[in-house]
Simulated assay, not measured.
Amino acid sequence: MTDDDTRRGYHHGDLRSALLRAAEEELTERGVEAFSLRQVARRAGVSHAAPAHHFGDTRGLLTALAAEGFHRFLAAQGLREAQAAPDPRAQLTAAGLGYIDFAMQRPALFRLLFGSDQPDFSDPTLDAAATAAYDHLRRQVADAGGDEVAAAAAWAMAHGLADLLSNGRLKAVAALPPAARDQVLMGLLEQSFPPPVR
Rank of each mutant, 00 (worst) to 15 (best):
L126A: 01
A156Q: 13
A64N: 03
F121G: 00
M186H: 09
L188W: 11
L97N: 04
I100G: 08
A180P: 00
D57Q: 06
V40C: 01
D5R: 05
A172P: 07
R42V: 14
A50Y: 03
V173Q: 08
A82D: 14
A22G: 06
A175Q: 13
F114K: 06
S47E: 13
A108L: 06
A129R: 07
G45H: 02
E29P: 01
E68P: 00
Q140E: 00
S192V: 08
Q91F: 05
D182L: 04
S17K: 12
R106Y: 02
D147P: 06
A85H: 06
T28Y: 02
E68C: 06
L137Q: 07
M186Q: 14
L189W: 08
R43N: 05
L170G: 10
D117Y: 03
R30C: 05
T2Y: 07
A172E: 15
G145C: 11
L65D: 04
D147K: 13
L109N: 07
S192N: 03
T131C: 02
R38Y: 01
S192H: 04
L170Y: 03
A142K: 09
A84E: 11
R80L: 08
P124N: 07
R72H: 06
H11G: 12
A18S: 14
A22C: 09
Q77F: 02
A84D: 05
Q118S: 03
W155P: 00
R30I: 02
A132L: 02
A82T: 08
A34I: 00
S166Y: 06
S47R: 12
L113T: 01
A162V: 12
E25D: 15
F55V: 11
Q77T: 08
A156V: 09
F55W: 11
A95W: 12
L79Q: 14
A64S: 14
A67Y: 01
R111F: 03
A67K: 09
E81Q: 15
L65R: 06
L170S: 08
M157C: 10
Y134I: 02
E33N: 05
A75G: 09
D120C: 03
H11E: 01
G13H: 12
L19K: 01
G31P: 02
T125G: 10
Q77K: 14
A151E: 03
G98A: 08
L126I: 02
T6N: 10
Q39E: 14
A158K: 12
S166N: 09
P177Y: 12
G187L: 03
L62S: 01
T63H: 03
A150G: 15
L113F: 03
A174G: 10
R7S: 13
P88K: 14
L109S: 06
P124Y: 10
A179K: 12
E26Y: 02
P119K: 00
D5M: 02
L161D: 14
Q105K: 06
P88G: 12
G96Y: 05
